[in-house]
């Protein structure tokens, strides 16, 4: 059953991406081919090899799972892709453009946005302020626009529009009752939701999600996954998801990449990966 569903979803995503490409110039040049290509990525910390020549690619519009035991190098891979760490070797391409070694903000500007495994909320800012921060290139983000009287009205108009968008997101993520709360007071699961919603508000082309559902209740998790699928279909968004819940991976991902000791051990459709001897040895074992 999940087989058919996944295939159908993938087909739908492709079709939607094509349809989208006609309407919005944005996705136009980006149809077909991988959104993200990582080639021979290497990173070590003082002799400890965290990523050891990882090579994989993520199809545009897909929800791809990135799995592997703790310490496999998944988070480090995210950090290398997004310029948080300098890489020791290898290349990262995003829609064909080399983004290796770009600063974190440049990567994000290009539409490749990530969340952190350990949620990084801006503690002393409210949930609303955390989310209002996200949209890129806001009017009023330059000093002159912020201060000079002539710009102020335009800035306020834009902020009102943004506020509306932010409140909708809060409702979707069921954290609207926390709107005025200091982000530092949220629970672990709520912080995860804050991160995910904040990342979505940047209007990205691709999201790297590092265990986004840790501590989130299952009902909401299903709802957010539905939303993710909708974004895949409607806007051709690409997702790379680190997740430990195998059922979730099996039911929702079109493609799975397995990392082990800094390398890609296997990749393919969920079922193929699940039945792969090497993967079972390295990681899954009795879980399946």
């Amino acid at each position: 059953m999940s087989d058919d569903a996944t295939a159908a979803r993938a087909a739908a995503a492709d079709a939607a991406a094509d349809a989208n490409a006609d309407e919005t110039g944005d996705v136009d040049a980006r149809t077909g081919g991988p959104a993200l290509e990582v080639e021979d990525l290497r990173k070590s910390f003082a002799g400890l090899v965290a990523v050891d020549g990882a090579t994989f690619s993520v199809e545009q519009g897909s929800l791809t799972g990135l799995i592997g035991p703790n310490g496999a190098g998944k988070s480090t891979t995210f950090n290398c892709i997004t310029g948080v760490h300098d890489v020791d070797g290898g290349t990262v391409r995003f829609f064909g453009e080399d983004v290796t070694g770009l600063r974190t903000n440049r990567v994000a500007e290009r539409g490749l946005v990530r969340t952190f495994q350990i949620a990084r909320e801006l503690e002393e800012m409210t949930v609303l302020e955390n989310l209002m921060l996200a949209p890129g290139d806001q009017r009023g983000e330059t000093l002159a626009q912020a201060v000079l009287p002539g710009f102020r009205d335009a800035v306020r108009d834009r902020e009102r529009a943004l506020r509306e968008e932010v409140w909708e997101t809060l409702e979707l993520f069921e954290i609207d009752h926390l709107a005025d709360e200091q982000a530092g007071n949220l629970s672990g699961g709520q912080r995860k939701l804050l991160e995910l919603s904040r990342a979505l508000l940047t209007d990205p082309d691709m999201l790297l999600l590092d265990e986004p559902f840790a501590g989130v209740n299952p009902t909401l998790e299903e709802k957010l996954l539905d939303r993710i699928h909708a974004l895949q279909r409607e806007r051709g968004l690409t997702f790379l998801l680190v997740e430990h819940d195998m059922d979730l991976i099996m039911n929702h991902c079109e493609h799975v990449i397995v990392m082990h000791q800094g390398q890609v051990l296997a990749e393919g459709p969920p079922e193929a990966v699940r039945d792969d001897e090497q993967v079972i040895d390295a990681y899954l074992g009795e879980e399946i």
Partner: peptide, 16 residues
């Protein structure tokens, strides 16, 4: 404010 709280977050959201 975001820079004060956690500069990497601001970077990750595309702020230079």
């Amino acid at each position: 404010k975001a820079i004060r709280e956690d500069e990497l977050v601001a970077n990750s959201l595309g702020k230079d």
